[in-house]
Every structure is written in C-alpha cells, then in structure tokens.
Design a protein around this nucleic acid. Structure first.
Length: 907
RNA sequence: GGGCGGUUGGCGCAGUUGGUUAGCGCGUUUGCUUGACAUGCAAAAGGUCAUAGGUUCGACUCCUAUACCGCCCACCA
C-alpha cells in the first residue's frame, strides 16, 4: 500500500474538503427515517475575518455535527452571516471616503447599493475561512440576516409585537454614539473604567426671603460633577430632603453659572448625600437619573448637543464646540469668575460604543423600544424549569439575574444599512396630534398609547387608514441588527411559513457560543423562540471560554495581539489547529494562546501519520477482511492484542461520555493518550514481534481503523486521508459517512489490563536499571526475576518475549525462589524482585571506580555545603532565599550519596 | 457597589460525584539516528495542590474567612 513518508496537510485538506462538498455529505434533508440533530451557527458578521474565537467556536460545533452524523442522525448545521448594521456601514463609509465620496451626497438608495456591492465582494470571506477550518456546514442553506425570507420574518415580528403593545416609540435617554451618530442599546454601550475628574462648582444662591438667611449661610452651593459641559442643560439642582446641610435652600433658587439662568432647587431622595457635596445638578436631557427627576418634578429638558456631540444653540457662546472642548472652556470661565472650587481625580465607569469605542453620550431622543418584561417571563421559566440547560452550569445564574432585571430594548438605529423600520407616518395626522409628554414608561406596566398618524405595516400602505391621505413616509431609521439575529433559529428555516424544516429540525439541539454574547443574543433568542414558536430554540447552551493571548489579554485586532487562525492553518494544518485549540480549552475556561501551542496538534498529526504508515506498510490486504467479533474468540490473540482492544473500548466509552457532557478537551486528550501512549508506545512495539500473524494483522487494522473514526470529528482531514488508504472492507465512500464504532463491553477486561500493566512495569524497571548502570543501549542482558506471593510466574513467562524485545534481554529466569546473583543490579516492583547480573555487562572495576570517584566528589561537595551552613554569618546575613537554596542543595547531595553507596555495595 | 472565575512542579494547564502512588504539554538532565515517527524513542529530576480554620476514617476535591490576579454586570452625578 502506497503512502508518502511526509504528511502534507495543505494538499490533503483541499482535496478532501472538495470531495465532501461535491458529494453532498454536508447536506441535510427532512428525513423521517432518522432523528434530527441541529445546530445553528452563531452568524459571524460580514465585516469580520476568522479569529481564534471563531476557530474555537466552530471547531466545537463541527465536532458535534460530525460525531452525531456518524451516529446516524440527520445533522443540520445551519450556516450564515449577519449584516452588522453599524460595523458594515462604518466600513463602507470609510471605503467611500477614501474614494472621495460620502453617503450624504450619494443618498440612501445609492449608498445601499454600494453596501450590497461591498457585501458581494467581501462579505463571504469568513465563509471561505470556515471551509478552510473544515466546517461541515450545510452550505446550500447559507442564510444572511437581510435575505428576503429573514427580512420578512423581521417585519412580521415588528408588526406582531406592535399590535400586542410590546413595541412603542418614545422620548427617553438612550446611549448615543456621536461618531456612529446613532442610538445604541444598553448592551451595545460597554462600560469601561476611565480616570475622570470630579469638578466642584459654585452655584450662587438667590434667596427670595432675604430675612430668613442667617449669617452663616453661604451665598452659593457647591455642585460636584464629572461632566461640567452638561451644565448648559441644567434645569435645577437637587438635594436629598433629609440632608440637613441644605435645609435653608427650601425657598431658594440658584443661578446657573456661565449662562446665568435661574434654577429651581428641588428635593428628591434619589440624591445620595454622601456623594460629592450632596448637591446634584439636574440635566434631564443628558443623564438618565436627571431625566427621571425631570419627569417627577415636571422640568422641561434642555437638549444642548447635536448628533455629533458638539454644543448646539442652547449652549449660547459655546455653540459649535465639541463636548470636551466645551468642558475646558467652561472650566476656564468658571475659574475666571471665581466659581470654580476644586477638582479631584475620580475613577468611574463610562459607556463606550461597542463598534468604535467612542465614549457614548446619554442623550434624550425619540426612539423605538421593545417592552421586555412580558417577553422575559416564559424565557425565564424555560431555563428555571431546566428545559434549556447551560454548560457550564454557572451561566444559568448570570442569565436569570439579567432576565429578572431586564430593561426595555432600544431597537431603532439612525443608520441606513439594515432592516428599515416598517412604520409609516401620515403627515396630515401627525400634525394634528400632540406628542404626549414623556413619562417614565420604561418597564411600566401600563399600556402604551399608540401615536396617531402612525401606521405599522409589513408593506407600505396605499393611504392613511385614518384620513385617507396618500402622503405617507416611512420611518428613516433601521432596526438593531440583533433584532434580526434573535429570530435566527427559526427565521433561517422559513418562519413565518410553516415549513417542513421547522417542523423537523426545530428546536435545535445545542447552541455553542461565547460568554460575551449571552445577553446580546442567547437570551433574546430564547425570548423570541418562546414568543413566536411557542417553544425553546435549543436544549443546551454550551458557553466556551474567551480566547486570550499568553498574557491574558483578550485577542483583538486593535491591540495587535492576534494569532491569525489562517496563518496557523497554513503553517501547521487545520487538523493541528483544531486539535490544539480543543485540547487546551477546558470546559468553560478562558484559553491562553501562543503560537507554539499549535505544535501539540501538529506533532500529534505527525505521530498518527507515521503510525499509520507503519501499519500500512505491514498490512496484508486479504488478512484483514474479517469480522472482529469472530476474531475475538480466536485463542491465538495475544495478550497485547487483547489488551489494546480492551483499552480501545474503554477509551471509546470515556470519549463519548466526555462529549455528552461537553468536556471536549477531555475527549481530545483521551484519544491522544490512547493513540500515542498506548497504541504507538506499547502495542505497535509489541506487535512488531508477531506482525506476520493473522491475529496481529486483524487487531492492528481494526484498532487503527476504529481509532481514526473516533478521532475524525476532531481531525477530519488526516483521518479521512489515512482511512481512504486502508484496505476497503467497507462500502463507505468517506469516513465522515461511516458509522461510529459500537461499544463492545465484552472486550474490556480489567484482568488483561492488570497483566499488561505488570509487563510494562517490568520492562520499565529493566530499562531504568540499564540507564542507571549505564549499560550500553544495544547490549543484551540476562534477567532474573523472583516472583512474589501472587503467583505471577506463569503470566510473566507467557509474555517474556515482550520483555526480551522491549528491554533488550537475552534470557529471563523466573521463579519463586531466585537467589540474588552476585554483582547484580536490583529493582523492586511490590514484592517482585528483578536482578541484572552486571558481570560481563559493564566493566565492574571501571564502574566501581567511576562511582567511588563520584562519591568522593559528592562528599567533598557535601562537606563544603555543610561548612557553609554552619557559618553563622552566612545563615544570618545572606538573603533567606539563598540560605534556603543552600539547604536544599545539601539535602539533595546527601540523598545522592546514600543511593551511590547502596549501588557501590551491590558491586 | 453586586456577581463570577482563577491560585496545583521553571512555564502553560487538567484533575467529572471527596478514596490507593496528584496527571498532561512545554522546558530541563542523561542516553539513543533502533527499518513508522528526531514534529521522534528511552530513562530521570522537579509539587507540604495560595493562606488560615472547619467537616470527615480520609480533603487538590466540601464549608467558612483572608490575600492576590482576572472577568462580567451596575444611572453615585
């Protein structure tokens, strides 16, 4: 049988991937004969390129898909990408800017054409890369969140939720990214600790009743703020009603410095007297707490910022300045007017845009929201009742905690790329209607009144249902990308149509994802599944760790600490990447990567390749086409044969159990251990003795062939390549279409394991003696074994050929009563004694001399070490570490002396 | 402020319900080009499992506290 001496991953991977894809092995169809097994891919975004997180995530999914496929399930792995509204728009805008164009002058239609064109050109990079990784996705079913079908699902959901009163439009404080110029959801604003400054500013007091002022009262209050520029929008100052320090302010108002506006003093328990000075400036348009205060105290918000966070006309002479510029300018002015008290460093968490990392601005604006509380209830129940299980379990608590404190979801985005909100406004009706005063509606239980002149519809209505006007305009905003992703498990299968796919493949079996995405996606998918499918979207959620570099920092493009999976694939091969990353990722733990970690997989692939080469070089085709079960009863089977079969079936059992409990690294390491340290290190070496014989031929073939099948989900390419070179006793065209090995408990024998264990221990003991006594590696020795009480004479005798071969022994004498030969080396295993007579094997005199020379050297070293430690100056003055080391050194010398003396005695 | 994770030989990590000798990879030392493999083989050195208590016949494993590192969530301006 023909096999190259070097494994070439690149060539192999291309060849077999093409073979699998062309032969339709990835494709799943509704099949009533088989049970379905479904995974939906967490859709990567079209601007993305494959990173290590993807590599880990998709390797895990591919392992399960291949495993279940071999177990006879109809496996669907649904692939796709998401349109990543903000990210993609940013990328295309940047590209256009480089070409001297901008989206405003192009207009919406033309700009969107450009984005679609960009998507055609670059949007499938990641798909190609997933193929390089070996992913066996059902590519003909590939979906995109802006496909017609999925867009239809989005509109359907919007209308349904609106009609149920779960979608509303309102004026609230939202997170605003001044760079992307759009609203963000709470999840999209990522809190990061920032070294800020807390500024203390005087607000002069205007007292209506001068007579009530005492002499001690100051003529101002001091307000502490981290964002002085927002004072342009102040409408009040607020203190805690129980704060005695500020009782005198009851009838007063204060003057807003800089703008000289008169501000009310209000009292509210929301203010923490312990923070700053206990006086809060109230800026309803630019802070969520202040907004709430504004609502309860009936204050009209003053919006001071444009959409790019520059100051608008409400900021008077600061108009046009950037928010940070304005901050400086205001502080300067306050200092000039002696209204500035002090500033102190203040570390606090500030939201940042998750797409461009710009500091987000809390901003009052009119947006669309989803009311989440009603949706969260069934989703919470599904997890609490155990219908959906998290692995590792601890994420359950994180999920429940978030769900129980869920807040309304801001879903409108002021960008163009995405699903345009299916809402139409009738110009005539809107003019007639009054926009209601903002009330604190977030999480409120009351029904939200629908605005007049607003038509929510999947298709553009011909005319306004109220007044009949045809002047209808669609909302300019688009929906949050996650508003389409949360429907993914069913929208990809044709929902809202009742398709046979949905019926068969839904709910899916497992969702594999990273922790960052639990709130963005997992939680919302569960809510959507319960609401629209009336069923859970998946049964298991496996949360794997985050991929970090070897210093523990999260890998990210901006930090430049990326290890590109494609580089690793080019250098070591996809199998090596897959095996390595799986093997070092313990369940749910973060994984720290460095380039050399991928050598694990490369070396393993090399080992497997060479072992297979050895087998193929020695295999006789006509001898292996036999049934293993028939062979099992063959008395000719040797101890080694029986042992490796016993070990294989134990490994198989543990491997499957580990996969079932999402302990994938354990599974990977189990097969690694088996192939390398049992099959190669021991079985192949022993099999060399009887390689011509039928029992060895069949065993070696079966164990290799089955091991390849077990390893295939993790290392699909190399296993396919070797498998194809094996003699064909099976009709399968591909290993990926072959069946998973059946568990055969009958082959597992603890007795066989123990017998072999003894043989291995004896061989290791003899090798150890050979090394310590410096016996030339190719010199055969005689061995005397005194068997202990356990009566192992016959069992050792039976396998003495193994000992002879693997430990280079010419003669073995075993009995219960062997006497210690003179000048013999001794090893002990429990009550078994092993002797090697050294006369004639090594030069005894020379060895004696070598050892006593060494002993002399050690003794003088010991003397010196002892003297050093007796030196009081050294012990008291030298650093503790040094003294400790000296002590340890002394200890190790004395133990060496003891063993050397013992060995000398033997000579 | 709340929650979670980690602390195991020089380095990076496993250790599933508490049970004989705590494993793996890298690195180190020694020997080996042995007809599958030097991306390898053989042998070896190296750990009081962060600290202090507790439960138990028995604790790396369970409980309590402490320390350090890291992550997530959060409207103290």
């Amino acid at each position: 049988m023909d096999i190259p001496s070097k494994y070439n991953p690149k060539e192999t991977e291309e060849k077999w991937y093409k073979f699998w894809e062309e032969n339709g092995f990835f494709h799943a169809e509704v099949n009533s004969e088989k049970k379905p097994y479904t995974i939906v891919i967490p859709p990567p975004n079209i601007t993305g390129i494959l990173h290590m997180g993807h590599a880990l995530n998709n390797t895990i999914q591919d392992i399960y898909i291949r495993f279940k496929r071999m177990q006879g399930y109809e496996t669907l792995w649904m692939p796709g990408t998401d349109h990543a509204g903000i990210a993609t728009q940013n990328v295309v805008e940047k590209k256009l800017r480089a070409e001297g164009k901008d989206k405003e002058s192009m207009g919406r239609e033309k700009f969107l054409d450009e984005v679609w064109k960009w998507k055609e050109d670059y949007g499938s990079t990641i798909i190609t890369q997933l193929k390089n990784l070996g992913c066996s996705c059902d590519w003909p079913r590939t979906r995109f969140t802006m496909d017609d079908g999925l867009s239809e699902a989005v509109r359907e959901v919007f209308v349904k939720l609106y009609e149920k009163g779960l979608i509303y439009r309102g004026n609230y404080i939202i997170n605003w990214c001044p760079r992307c110029k759009t609203a963000l959801s709470d999840e999209e604003a990522q809190h990061r600790d920032v070294d800020g400054v807390l500024y203390y500013i005087k607000y002069p007091i205007v007292t209506k009743d001068e007579g009530r002022r005492t002499k001690d009262d100051k003529d101002h209050v001091v307000v502490a703020t981290t964002r002085p520029e927002t004072m342009l929008g102040d409408v009040a100052v607020c203190v805690n009603p129980r704060d005695k320090r500020y009782k005198h302010l009851k009838e007063s108002s204060v003057i807003l410095p800089v703008l000289n506006r008169e501000l009310k003093v209000i009292f509210d328990s929301k203010v923490d007297p312990k923070f700053g000075t206990g006086v809060l400036k109230v800026t309803p348009a630019h802070d969520p707490v202040d907004f709430e205060l504004g609502v309860t105290h009936g204050l009209e918000p003053v919006n001071i910022m444009n959409d790019d966070a520059t100051i608008n006309e409400a900021g008077d002479r600061f108009k046009g300045m950037d928010r940070f510029e304005a901050r400086e300018a205001i502080i300067d002015e306050l200092k000039e007017r002696d209204l500035f008290v002090k500033s102190e460093p203040h570390r606090h968490a500030v939201g940042h845009c998750y797409r461009c990392h710009t500091m987000v601005e809390p901003r009052l604006s009119k947006q669309w929201f989803v009311k989440m509380k009603p949706l969260s209830k069934p989703a919470l129940q599904a997890v609490k009742k155990g219908r959906i299980k998290f692995y590792p379990k601890r994420w359950t608590k994180v999920y429940i905690n978030w769900m129980e404190n869920i807040r309304d979801w801001c879903i409108s985005r002021q960008i163009w790329w995405g699903h345009r909100i299916p809402v139409y406004y009738c110009k005539a009706c809107i003019q007639k209607s009054q926009i209601p005063n903002p009330k604190s509606q977030i999480n409120s239980k009351s029904q939200i009144p629908k605005e007049e002149g607003t038509v929510v519809s999947k298709v553009k209505p011909e005319k306004c249902p109220a007044c009949g006007s045809t002047e209808l305009e669609q909302d300019n905003d688009v929906l949050d990308t996650w508003f389409s992703s949360w429907l993914w498990p069913f929208s990809t299968m044709g929902w809202p149509e009742k398709t046979k796919e949905l019926d068969y493949f839904y709910p899916t079996d497992v969702l594999v994802t990273a922790q960052e995405i639990i709130f963005f996606w997992v939680a919302r998918m569960i809510m959507a599944g319960m609401e629209f499918m009336n069923d859970i979207p998946f049964r298991d959620v496996y949360i794997h760790g985050t991929v970090r570099d070897d210093t523990g920092t999260k890998m990210s493009k901006s930090l430049g600490n990326i290890i590109d999976p494609i580089d690793v694939i080019n250098q070591f091969g996809s199998d090596a990447l897959r095996f390595s990353i799986i093997s070092i990722t313990a369940q749910g733990q973060d994984v720290f990567l460095s380039p050399q970690k991928f050598e694990i997989g490369r070396n393993f692939a090399n080992k497997l390749w060479n072992a297979s080469r050895f087998v193929l070089m020695n295999l006789k085709e006509d001898m292996v086409k036999r049934d293993l079960c028939q062979t099992a009863s063959d008395p000719a089977l040797s101890l080694a044969d029986r042992w490796i079969l016993s070990r294989f079936y134990q490994m198989l059992d543990i491997f499957s159990k580990n996969l079932a409990s999402y302990r994938i690294n354990d599974a990977a390491n189990k097969i690694y251990e088996f192939i390398w340290h049992e099959f190669c290190d021991w079985y192949l070496e022993m099999a060399k003795l009887t390689i011509e014989e039928a029992h060895t031929q069949i065993t070696i073939y079966k164990v290799l062939e089955k091991s390849l099948r077990v390893l295939h989900p993790i290392m699909p390419f190399i296993t396919e390549d070797i498998w194809q070179r094996l003699p064909k006793e099976h009709g399968d065209k591909s290993i990926m279409a072959s069946s998973w090995p059946h568990a055969q408990k009958a082959f597992i024998s603890k007795k066989i394991d123990a017998d072999m264990q003894l043989v291995i221990q004896i061989i290791q003991a003899i090798r150890n003696l050979r090394a310590t006594w410096r016996i030339e590696y190719n010199k055969d020795v005689d061995v005397f074994i005194k068997a202990g009480k356990k009566g192992v004479v016959s069992s050792i005798e039976k396998c003495s050929t193994y000992v002879k071969k693997l430990a280079r022994v010419s003669n073995i004498s075993i009995s219960d009563t062997v006497k210690k030969p003179s000048h013999a080396a001794l090893a002990v295993i429990e009550d078994i004694e092993i002797f090697i007579p050294l006369e004639g094997v090594i030069d005894l005199e020379k060895e004696k001399k070598r050892l006593s020379d060494k002993l002399d050297g050690l003794l003088s070293e010991l003397k010196a070490a002892e003297a050093k430690l007796k030196n009081k100056n050294f012990v008291s003055k030298a650093p503790e570490e040094v003294v400790k080391k000296a002590r340890e050194r002394k200890e190790s010398i004395s133990t060496e002396v003891v063993s050397l003396r013992k060995n000398l005695k033997l000579l």
